[in-house]
Simulated assay, not measured.
Amino acid sequence: MQLEQSSRETTAAWSGTVPSAVDVRVLGLVVVTAGLAASINVPYGGLPMAAVAFALLASGGGALHLLGERKLRRLTDDLVERWVAAGGKIDGVTRSSNGMETAWHVHTPDGEIVIGGVALVPITRLSIEWQGIGDTMDASEAEANIDHLAESLYREIFELGSATQQA
């Protein structure tokens, strides 16, 4: 399993890596929230206390986003690797972000699978969408049951999906 650091990879051939997806919008939300929370300290502790509170909250929120992104990227990588090992054809994996959700698009001959979620621990949730049908679960639950999840999704997407499109 390789996790690539570059967020600019958009190749069409599966290279064995899932691009990074650090999202500046989520980081911006963290900074704004930290600023608002720190501003409460100005009347009580003054500007030095507000600056310390801002630094702690912003760095903590940034770390939580990085942990959430890493968890989602690792889940995406694990799913794709298991699908490839089971015989599924993957053309490529690209990243995108819509709203506050970070997503990876897994390109297959049968269509596009979107794997993503909100990358902010402890509320990190994994969402998977294929042909307009989606499912969402807690990322920790998905990580604990990755083998079963990959197997059931493989059957649904690659075996049943291929049979449905050929009919």
Rank of each mutant, 00 (worst) to 15 (best):
M1W: 05
M1Y: 05
E4D: 09
S6K: 09
S7C: 11
S7F: 11
S7T: 11
R8F: 12
R8L: 09
R8A: 10
T11M: 14
T11S: 10
T11G: 14
A12Q: 14
W14F: 09
S15E: 15
G16S: 11
G16L: 05
T17S: 12
T17H: 13
V18H: 12
V18A: 14
P19N: 12
P19S: 10
A21W: 06
V22D: 14
V22F: 12
V22G: 13
D23G: 13
D23Y: 07
V30E: 05
V31N: 05
V32N: 05
A34C: 04
G35S: 09
A37E: 00
P43V: 14
P43L: 12
Y44E: 08
G45A: 13
G46C: 11
L47R: 14
L47M: 12
M49I: 15
A50G: 10
V52C: 15
A55G: 14
L56K: 15
L57V: 00
A58K: 06
S59T: 03
G60W: 09
G61S: 04
L66T: 08
L66C: 14
L66W: 09
L66S: 07
L67G: 05
L67T: 03
K71L: 04
K71F: 01
T76S: 09
T76C: 09
L79C: 05
V80C: 06
V80F: 05
V80E: 01
E81P: 13
W83T: 00
V84I: 06
G87I: 04
G88D: 00
G88H: 02
K89W: 01
I90V: 07
D91F: 15
G92P: 15
V93D: 08
R95P: 12
R95H: 13
N98D: 07
G99S: 06
M100S: 15
E101V: 15
T102H: 11
A103S: 12
H105M: 06
V106H: 14
V106D: 07
H107K: 10
P109W: 00
D110R: 07
E112I: 02
I115N: 10
I115D: 09
G116C: 12
G116T: 06
G117N: 08
V118Y: 08
A119H: 06
L120K: 07
L120P: 08
L120T: 04
L120D: 03
L120Y: 10
I123M: 13
I123Y: 07
T124L: 01
R125N: 13
W130A: 01
Q131T: 04
G132N: 04
I133M: 15
I133A: 10
G134Q: 12
D135E: 04
T136E: 04
T136L: 03
M137A: 01
A139K: 01
A139L: 04
S140M: 01
E141I: 01
E143D: 06
A144Y: 00
A144R: 02
A144Q: 00
N145P: 03
I146F: 04
L149W: 00
A150P: 10
E151R: 07
S152C: 03
L153C: 00
R155C: 02
I157S: 02
F158S: 03
F158E: 02
E159T: 05
E159C: 04
L160S: 03
G161M: 01
S162R: 10
A163I: 06
T164K: 11
T164S: 13
A167D: 07
A167Q: 08
